[in-house]
Structures are given as structure tokens and as C-alpha cells.
Simulated assay, not measured.
Amino acid sequence: MQTTLLDGLGTVAAVIRSIGARHPGAHDLVTDGLYLDLRRALRNPADDPALRYATGLDGEVYAHVLATPGARELIARTAVQLRALADEVPRGRLVRLTVACQGGRHRSVAVAEEVGRRVWTAWGGQRGVEIEHHHVDLPVLPASG
């Protein structure tokens, strides 16, 4: 697992996790909060041989995902929902967002990173955001049949 911490002056208020829905046990990581499944919403960078073995932490995959039609709007709506949920819970309680794609290496990673950055920026760095990538280091999954 890889983690990105967008540190704030206060405590971490949001945890965003990316997962690959086809990995065994992936859905055990979905405990509470918001859930966003990108498998039908965004094109899969793994279908492009030039991007297949890179991840959403790599600039070319990140840009590819964000350039997918509808991606930026989906990210913006998700960031607003996460912030609204965080505003409803008492300070000190975490809000969670799980972002899923097929293998957890491309789409979910890029979207989790961008949502995290937007939420952290909207909070003006006053609250922290932790982004966990649970399957980013696992091998690329074969195409589903």
C-alpha cells in the first residue's frame, strides 16, 4: 500500500482509499462513507499498451484519466460531497471515500489523488487528507472476460 498525506494544521479529517474491485478482499476495505465505482464511468488506461504498466501516480496516466470525458465533473461532484459530509460530522471524526476501479492501479488512484487535492485545497490546508492506495503495487490484472 502507498499513502499520500496532505497535511493540515488540524488533524486528518478525510481518508480516501483507492481499491481494485477485482482483487480478493477488496470489498472488505469498504467500511463506511462514500463509495465511487469508476469501472463504467471512465475509460481504462490499462487498455492502452503504453499506459498498462504505469499507475495513476504517474503523470501520463494521471493526465489520461483526468482527460477522460466527464472525469473532471465527476471529481468535482465527489469532492463537494466529501466536504459536505465532513462538515456534518463532529470535529475529530473521519469521513471516508472509497474509489474503485478494476485493478486499483490507474483510474481509482488518479481520481483519489485529485479528489484529495481538491478537498485539501478547499479546506485551505486547515484539515488533513490521507489518501491510501491499497492495490497500486499489485500486478496488472488480466482483462475480464
Rank of each mutant, 00 (worst) to 15 (best):
Q2H: 14
T4P: 00
L5V: 12
L6S: 05
G8V: 02
G8Q: 10
G10R: 03
G10H: 00
T11P: 12
T11D: 15
V12A: 05
V12M: 00
A14H: 05
S18G: 09
G20K: 07
G20I: 11
A21M: 13
H23S: 05
A26E: 14
A26G: 10
A26I: 12
A26W: 11
H27F: 15
L29C: 04
V30I: 14
V30P: 09
V30T: 07
L34Y: 00
L34K: 00
Y35W: 09
D37A: 01
D37E: 08
R39C: 10
R40S: 08
A41M: 14
A41D: 13
R43A: 15
D47W: 13
D47K: 04
P49Y: 09
A50Y: 07
L51W: 13
R52G: 08
R52P: 08
T55R: 07
T55N: 09
L57S: 15
D58H: 14
E60D: 15
E60K: 12
Y62T: 02
Y62G: 04
H64K: 02
L66W: 13
L66T: 09
A67C: 09
T68K: 00
P69M: 14
P69W: 12
A71D: 11
A71K: 06
E73M: 05
E73L: 10
E73C: 01
I75M: 07
A76Q: 07
R77I: 00
R77T: 04
R77W: 07
T78L: 04
V80Y: 01
L85Y: 06
A86S: 07
D87V: 02
E88C: 08
E88W: 05
E88N: 11
P90N: 11
P90D: 14
R91W: 03
R91P: 15
L94M: 03
V95H: 12
R96L: 09
R96A: 13
L97C: 10
L97F: 03
T98N: 14
T98Y: 14
C101G: 08
G103L: 07
G103M: 01
H106V: 09
S108H: 07
S108I: 03
V109S: 04
V109P: 08
V109L: 10
A110D: 07
A110P: 11
A112T: 02
A112I: 02
A112P: 06
E114M: 07
R118D: 03
R118G: 05
T121Q: 13
A122V: 02
A122L: 03
W123Y: 05
W123T: 01
V129F: 04
V129K: 06
V129Q: 01
E130L: 13
I131H: 06
E132M: 10
H134N: 09
H135T: 05
H135Y: 11
H135A: 06
H135G: 13
H135M: 06
V136K: 06
L138S: 11
L138Y: 12
P139N: 04
L141D: 14
P142M: 01
G145L: 04
